[in-house]
Design a protein around this nucleic acid. Sequence first.
DNA 1: GTGAAAGCGCTAACAA
DNA 2: TTGTTAGCGCTTTCAC
Lengths: 350, 350
Amino acid sequence: MHVTLHDVCRKTGFSTATVSRALNGSPLVAEDTRNLVVEAAKELGYQPSHAARMLKLKRADMIAVIFPEIDSGFFTEVLRGIDETASEHSYHLMTAFTHGPDDERNLISRFVWERRVDALILMNLTLPEAYLRDLSLWEHPIVLMDRPVRMDNMYSVSIDNRNGARELTNHLIEHGYRRIAFISGPKGTYDADERLAAFRETMGENGLEVNDRLIWPGQFTEASGRDAVARWLDADNPLPDAIFAANDAMAIGALSLLRERGFRVPRDTALVGFDDIDTAAHLGLTTVHVPMRRMGSIAAQLAVDQISQNKSLTSYRLPVACAVRSSCGCPTGVSSDPAAADKAKREALT
Amino acid sequence: MHVTLHDVCRKTGFSTATVSRALNGSPLVAEDTRNLVVEAAKELGYQPSHAARMLKLKRADMIAVIFPEIDSGFFTEVLRGIDETASEHSYHLMTAFTHGPDDERNLISRFVWERRVDALILMNLTLPEAYLRDLSLWEHPIVLMDRPVRMDNMYSVSIDNRNGARELTNHLIEHGYRRIAFISGPKGTYDADERLAAFRETMGENGLEVNDRLIWPGQFTEASGRDAVARWLDADNPLPDAIFAANDAMAIGALSLLRERGFRVPRDTALVGFDDIDTAAHLGLTTVHVPMRRMGSIAAQLAVDQISQNKSLTSYRLPVACAVRSSCGCPTGVSSDPAAADKAKREALT
DNA sequence: GTGAAAGCGCTAACAA
DNA sequence: TTGTTAGCGCTTTCAC
């Protein structure tokens, strides 16, 4: 069997209280005692039972991270960011993918009410407002990684979708593109809605009419990007000057379909995306860079701060920057100073 | 505070024993009693404390998954596979990235000796044989996702690196390539060593000499792929007929450097990789398809089987298939029936 | 079919 | 400075 506190007691002759204190760095033990105990513990290979500790202390040292089934290429980087910061603070991560929307709630409820975790980080889930309100009664913090929230005990880290979409739209317009199609994301998603809205606004501000036929519905997946373009072409419509896909996955889908049909980008039409996933750089896709790792890191920081009652900011909105590459046929580069853009500009949502 | 078993007792008037039995589906409770208890529990929103359960039952319902810091693009898919199968069997996942080699062992030791998890899935870690041997004394199963092992209580899921490298090398040779360079992975890594060895063998079998200068050292990273090619070109060497990178990340690095220097693939040199990460398809990179999700799923299955004492196979080696795309300038397609290739061919390593 | 009580391994209040 | 002891919330043996 495994080594318990009692084994260390037996070996050293001290009581459980003393041994526990010694091992936990309490100042109420003699230095000699501590050394003896620590030594013995090491020799025996003693490690405290997490279950017992958890039961007594009512802490789990654990943060749950829940991701939706569909992956926008985001996943790994965000998780890395979370892990980095969480592990710095000695928190471990429990990860789960949701398999459908019911599952989302089941998972969350279990994690929360079984007291398995000390905080929750939720990514792009489709939770109704009412459910969130219930959740916010939980004694532990919840961090949302999609939309901003104004609710007690809920925190958020999101990005400045509007500015990103605006900048990139402006970029296209400045370089002479007029008829611009937009492949939108799933309606009702915060990111998708914001990006589309900013696109519309910016077009309007520039005196360009947005023909609703040029708003092609998509689902943030590669396949939906392909389909959007395919439907357009199949109806014998002429290509627009440029295509703005609301995320890179769809842009990549669009690109592959365009190539299959014999079109060249940017010769026949410019193409841009949003997110800056790995593949975007390799394909020379112009896009809006989203600091995924940093988002993860901040989400974890927010969670940790709240657990330890270091009341910090409630919400972050991170700035983004355009990454101009070959797919839009313009001089390449980054729209703003990347260092500045990457620096987390705090912005409380008050 | 949260709801405990006692609250349910108070509400129903039954003892903890009965309530516990009723909730856990024990046959030793009257049907009426059970209904009453279940009803009350639901009303109160009772969920058993994981900590208490864990302490009593000595189970954690948890599988740890440990990944190395460097990501070969593998990560997400493998984790999805693991999650899929683990969650089917009601296991949760604890994930961690190692930050350096010391960290690897620290993490593992903690997870194991704090009894936080019921099984361990380790991916491509750099653990010395001796450490593994210690680990195998643990009462719970350990699944390695890199190399095959022959050790009690250790299981592995790996892929047929040799066959993959052999097939792809043959493919290149059949299509007329003779001077083939190989960008190798980090020495001492199982995958890297196997792939290189098979490349050498296959070249030999075809009567082709392998000039050691054409074995370029790499580290499985994109940057190292770039460097390998850069060093070669900087020394004013002529491009080989084809370049076989031991993984896709390096192939992609090589590709971007070649393009920067004004070379075209496959016109100036063919280029192939190994792994079939997402980006490979988008870039038209010929490569060896590795069924990552399936590997994850099998790893989880192995772990679950062992936890529940369903002595199953100890090790799997999955077959792979070439995915021929444009980067090698050959007719495209898949080398073998993909359905057949994807079907897990069991192969006990005895 | 149900209940009383012990105990999983730990921490911390209280006593000495 | 150290020890005794009472739980944390659950499962399960043993009695009834």
